[in-house]
């Protein structure tokens, strides 16, 4: 029960910030995909950079564990291509479709219904995919620090610097 409450509170905070950051909009999502408006990328990458440093700090303090999904080239690459195609058509991703509905953009409702249908279809296709695409290039649970054999506190600042460089460039170009 407590864990469900944590979920709800985390969602409310996250949804609030998504709305205030103006990233729940079709125009912003398509703006990013059309390389015209980088609002989404600014929000997402800043979020990732802060969370990356914070989560690794928690891990080093022994207060949290990482949750690493396996790298499966077949599933990741094919899934990514298919996801991108659908994202471009819908203009919302799974979480933002629900959020967009919350601020009254009710075309997202068709997207949510479509996503439920897509999830049902995937469940039907899973036995086949499990023996095909999901076995191609299974590299297991990888992280960059582990792959390169260096401390994560070398990778994290490099990622942050890369992100900052990108942000300065966005602002210079007015994206």
């Amino acid at each position: 029960m407590t864990i469900l409450l944590y979920g709800l509170i985390t969602g409310i905070l996250f949804g609030f910030l998504l709305q205030r950051g103006r990233v729940l909009r079709y125009d912003k999502q398509l703006g990013a995909l059309r390389l015209m408006d980088m609002t989404i990328v600014k929000f997402m990458l800043t979020s990732i950079l802060v969370a990356m440093a914070g989560v690794y700090l928690l891990k080093d303090l022994g207060w949290a564990q990482l949750s690493i999904k396996p790298t499966i080239m077949g599933g990741n690459i094919l899934g990514g291509l298919i996801f991108g195609l659908g994202w471009g058509l819908l203009g919302y991703c799974p979480g933002t479709a629900v959020g967009a509905l919350g601020e009254g953009r009710w075309d997202a409702l068709w997207g949510v219904l479509g996503m439920l249908a897509g999830a049902g279809l995937f469940a039907e296709a899973y036995p086949f995919l499990k023996t095909t695409a999901l076995t191609w290039g299974n590299l297991g649970k990888l992280t960059l620090p582990q792959l390169l054999g260096v401390s994560h506190w070398l990778i994290i600042p490099l990622m942050a610097l890369g992100g900052l460089g990108l942000f300065f460039w966005f602002e210079k170009k007015g994206l």
Partner: peptide, 12 residues
């Protein structure tokens, strides 16, 4: 688009 995106997200 929603159906396609979700299928891809689950595959990945």
């Amino acid at each position: 688009g929603g159906a396609v995106a979700m299928f891809g997200a689950r595959l990945a």
